[in-house]
Simulated assay, not measured.
Amino acid sequence: MENAVVGLIVVAGTSVAVAALCLLLAFLCRRHSSKSRLKPCSRQRCCSAAAGSTLPVSVSDGMTPDYLSWSFYSTTAEASLQKLSLADLAAATGGFSPDNIIGDGSFGFVYRAVLPDGAAVAVKRLSGDCDAGAGNREFRAELEVLGSLSHSNLARLLGYCADGRDRILVYELLERGSLDAWLHGGDADDSGGTGTLPWPARLRVARGAAAALEFLHHGRRPPVLHRDVKSSNVLLSEGFEAKLADFGLARIIRGSPAKSHVSTQAAGTVGYVAPEIWDGVGATTMADVYSFGVLLIEIVTGKRPSWPIKASIGDKEVNLVDWTREKIHAGQAWEILDRRMGIQSQGTEMEEAKGLLEIARRCIDSAAKNRPTMEDVVAMLNKV
């Protein structure tokens, strides 16, 4: 009898031990499974929390890492991410139809596009082959920073698509078009025809573009070089507020303090490029200042910087910068004003135009060290 009781106790104890072991194993497995399911949510929360500094990236599936099609947005942490594929953008631009081109330059065409949600945007398709390796990764990293920039005089970079060797930038659309179109003719219109940009609007544009460059150079760390300041990259809002656009060439300035102001990659557009760039010195903030000085001359004269001009002496062809220097030095600023503005030889507007040309003269100094900073330029423009 006693042996039977002992046997029952042993069996019962063994059963309890086995059951406890099974429960423990089940608990551990469930805990591990729960942790695994929580990982993606945890990463997503981390990504959203950091959206203000590092923009979230959405990636299309089924592509190799070096040829990803992805986009990022300057949005709040709670905003839903869209995925922009090359096919999406092709559809939005009518297959990159020439009929939808609203701008062009040495680095690609800009198209008017309507996204699936009905939003109208400007899409720039960069021309030329792009490195799909390390250069592509560097380009992405810089665009993430550029996409986070926020200033009233910067056209907002909404997204980016990389597919194979295609590189596409998506910007907010500004219906007034570019300063280039208003100065030199194009699709910009006012009451059904291409209008002449009056002097008050030109002065407003000059101040706005200067404020944008001041922000890029001095309003953030590390600074940003634009490297392609020109009238076609100055877009206009309904109130003719200037917004500097096209950061496809921009570079974040990194490195030691001694080299932190230099970008070794030459870039720019003929007529606007600082002389030191042609000498192989490399782009600096002072090169942007030079390009801005040329832009001021273009605003006042209404002439393209890339077109030669007949000089008054001997009908020799010279470039716009040399021609302007000669006229300012001779005290003949009145002769180079855009006649379409109707500015009189005497009066407030004439004095303002002369003020802009004097600022331009300082910006286009052949020696980079003698040029003012964009902070100085903004201060001078505010006194005009």
Rank of each mutant, 00 (worst) to 15 (best):
P56K: 07
D189C: 15
L143F: 08
D246Q: 01
A367C: 01
P198V: 09
G271F: 06
P222T: 03
G105C: 00
R112Q: 11
L143V: 03
E241S: 12
P372I: 05
A206L: 03
T284A: 05
L173N: 03
K354H: 07
R137W: 14
H217N: 06
I309G: 09
H329N: 05
Q82R: 09
E375H: 12
D66E: 01
R251V: 00
D99H: 11
I101A: 02
P305H: 08
V377H: 13
G95D: 07
Q265R: 15
L213V: 02
R112M: 07
A90G: 08
I313S: 10
D322Q: 10
S312V: 07
K243C: 07
A134W: 12
L320T: 09
S53C: 11
W70N: 03
V11I: 13
I297V: 12
W323K: 12
A26M: 00
H184E: 05
L84A: 01
V270N: 10
R45W: 04
F96R: 05
A113V: 02
W70Y: 09
G13E: 10
W323A: 13
E298N: 05
E326Y: 10
A119V: 13
K354W: 10
L173I: 06
V224G: 08
A113T: 01
L295V: 13
A50K: 12
L115Q: 05
D99E: 15
C22F: 11
C363L: 00
L236W: 05
D322Y: 09
G293P: 06
R202F: 02
V378N: 02
H226Y: 11
E142I: 06
W182P: 05
L126R: 07
D228L: 13
G208C: 03
L23A: 10
P257Q: 06
I313L: 09
E375A: 12
S263K: 08
W278P: 08
N136M: 14
E335D: 14
L213Y: 03
P65R: 05
T75M: 15
G271T: 05
A209M: 01
M1E: 12
R176M: 12
M1Y: 12
G95W: 10
G108H: 04
R112F: 05
T76I: 15
T14H: 12
V377I: 14
T301I: 04
Y171H: 07
A210R: 01
S263A: 14
L225T: 09
W323F: 14
L169W: 13
T348E: 04
A122I: 02
R340H: 08
E349A: 10
V377W: 10
H217A: 10
I328P: 00
E276C: 11
R202Q: 01
R37W: 05
F292I: 00
N136R: 15
G195E: 04
G239S: 15
T54P: 11
Q346L: 06
